[in-house]
Every structure is written in structure tokens, then in C-alpha cells.
């Protein structure tokens, strides 16, 4: 596959010098995101996130499988990120690039390891049957800041998702089809979001939020902070060789918290809007099969 064309020296210097003069190519503030748009599909568990020209589609699905032998009480939860040549011709099928590995590691740490989804609730029969929840992340267009867009898409897809209802009766497990019983939502504990800072300049003293693809190619380092709206940090990943001042990083996490609160509110509003759209005739409350906690 052809290699991605690197920006020329002139382009790089132009971006760098503009940043020194407190300007970004698209006229944004340093701590300003591109407009984030989120839409849900007709099916449950499909979320489409557009961040400027970056577009990510996440689809959550579930099926019944056998749990892992060493974790008989836990369900299976996987996030699959495979970058297709659709995002850029330099990505190849079945050959993960560094971008892809980093993306899947970060999503893993942010969503899976932070316990956002209660995997114990996915267990049906200890050691024999459990739900396997899988999220597929499809990057349709890559224009920088894949991590934040993908994380938002994964969280939105999982919160929107409904799995088939089940019942246990005298040792017999029944999985109801959508025609029999209204599917139930996952047991969701908190919604983490990623906020990525990019650092520019020789000392890494210029910090910029939501870098575009061109800016990502010029940056000297980046720092991804994952946290939820309560300010609980799930992980911090600082990548790139250039060291960054600790006080500057603290400042970054403060701004990140404000952004995450905005994302959380937006996601809640969108989910409520979607629920209203689906609730035709107001029968949803009666159709619901799950019990309130």
C-alpha cells in the first residue's frame, strides 16, 4: 500500500509558527474542540460520531457464549478496532499499524479496564453461559483525534445498546427474541471519555486540544486523559519523547474535566432524545422488561 504522504517542511513550519503566534489553521482556540456530532442508528447500539472531518461508527452486539475458564463469573467484553483502507489507503487489512494498536490499547484501558461495563452482570449460568458483548469500531474518515472520537462512539454505542432479555426457569435458560420481549439495556456504571492534548514547540510548551491530522503529524508529543464527569481519572497516557512540565499537565487535566462534563451532558441529552423518538405512543414504559435497580 502507498505510504501516507508526510507534510512538507514548509507545511510543518507554517503550522508550528502559526501555533507560536497563538493561531490554528482552522481558526479555533487552543482548547476548543471541533463540532462533535452524535447520531444513533435505527437499530440499538449503533452510534455515529463526527468530529470535524473525522467520522467513527461504533456498533455494539451481544451473543451468548461460554465464559473464560479462569473467570467463570464474568461475561466477555471486547472492543474491536480495525482500521480499514477506507480511513486511509495506507492502512492494510489484517496488518495492524501503530495507530491501530495505540487506539485499541487506549480504548481497552479507558472503557474496559475502568469497569464502565459491569461484566459480572453479563453472567447467565456461572461457568457455563454468559453474554459476550462486542463493540466494533469502524473508522470511516480519519482527520485527526481518532482516540477521542472513537471513545465517544464506543461509550455512546454501549449506552444505547439493548441486549435480548433472558430468564432462568428450573435450570433452563431462555433467551427471548426482540419479537417476544423488549430488549434490556446493559448494566452501565460510568461513562469515561478521552481528551487528547497535543504538544508543540521544542519544549512541548504549547498544548492544543483536538488536533487535526496535519497537526498530529507535526506535534512533538501527546497526552490522553480518560476520565468521567465526576473527575475520576481512568488512565493517563503521555506519548512522544518530549517531556512536558508537570504543572502544565495539571492544567490540562482541569480543562479535560470541563470538556468531559460537556460530552456527558450532550450524550445524556442525545440518549433522552432518541428514547423519546422510539417511544411512539408512550408504551415503552409498559413494554420494558427490566427491573429498576
Amino acid at each position: 500500500m502507498p505510504r501516507e504522504a508526510e507534510p512538507s517542511l514548509n507545511e510543518k513550519q507554517f503550522v508550528a509558527q502559526a501555533l507560536q503566534e497563538n493561531l490554528r489553521l482552522d481558526g479555533r482556540e487552543f482548547d476548543q474542540y471541533r463540532p462533535l456530532e452524535l447520531s444513533f442508528g435505527d437499530q440499538y447500539g449503533v452510534a455515529d460520531v463526527t468530529l470535524g472531518r473525522t467520522r467513527v461508527l461504533a456498533k455494539a452486539t451481544a451473543e451468548v457464549t461460554v465464559p473464560y475458564a479462569d473467570r467463570p463469573l464474568d461475561g466477555v467484553f471486547t472492543i474491536a478496532t480495525e482500521l480499514s483502507p477506507m480511513a486511509s489507503p495506507s492502512f492494510e487489512v489484517n496488518r495492524p499499524t501503530e495507530t491501530e494498536v495505540l487506539l485499541s490499547r487506549l480504548l481497552e484501558k479507558t472503557v474496559r479496564r475502568s469497569g464502565a461495563l459491569d461484566t459480572e452482570s453479563l453472567c447467565l449460568v456461572a461457568g457455563q453461559k454468559c453474554w459476550s458483548v462486542r463493540v466494533d469500531v469502524h473508522v470511516l474518515a480519519h482527520d485527526g483525534n481518532l482516540i477521542d472520537a472513537s471513545c465517544a462512539a464506543v461509550v455512546a454505542a454501549l449506552r444505547h445498546f439493548r441486549k435480548p432479555d433472558t430468564s432462568m426457569d428450573a435450570g433452563v435458560l431462555t433467551v427471548y427474541t426482540p419479537a417476544e420481549r423488549e430488549p434490556v439495556p446493559l448494566s452501565w456504571l460510568h461513562s469515561p471519555f478521552c481528551v487528547t492534548w497535543s504538544f508543540f514547540g521544542e519544549e512541548g510548551d504549547i498544548a492544543v486540544l483536538d488536533a487535526t491530522w496535519l497537526e498530529e503529524q507535526v506535534r512533538v508529543g501527546s497526552c490522553t486523559v480518560s476520565l468521567n464527569k465526576h473527575g475520576e481519572i481512568c488512565q493517563i497516557a503521555k506519548l512522544g519523547g518530549t517531556p512536558v512540565d508537570a504543572v502544565a499537565l495539571l492544567q490540562c487535566t482541569n480543562v479535560a474535566l470541563a470538556r468531559v462534563k460537556e460530552f456527558s451532558d450532550m450524550l445524556d441529552a442525545k440518549l433522552a432524545e432518541d428514547a423519546k423518538r422510539r417511544d411512539k405512543g408512550g408504551f415503552m414504559a409498559e413494554l420494558r422488561a427490566e427491573n429498576d435497580r
Binding site: G41, L57, E63, V64, S84, M86, H138, V175, T177, A179
Partner: peptide, 13 residues
């Protein structure tokens, strides 16, 4: 990239 395909409500896939 297939984004959406019709689902059969009578079977769990």
C-alpha cells in the same frame, strides 16, 4: 462497509 442490515426479530443472531 456494511453499516446496517435488516434484522429478523424472530431469531437471535
Amino acid at each position: 462497509q456494511v453499516e446496517d442490515s435488516p434484522e429478523n426479530d424472530y431469531v437471535n443472531t
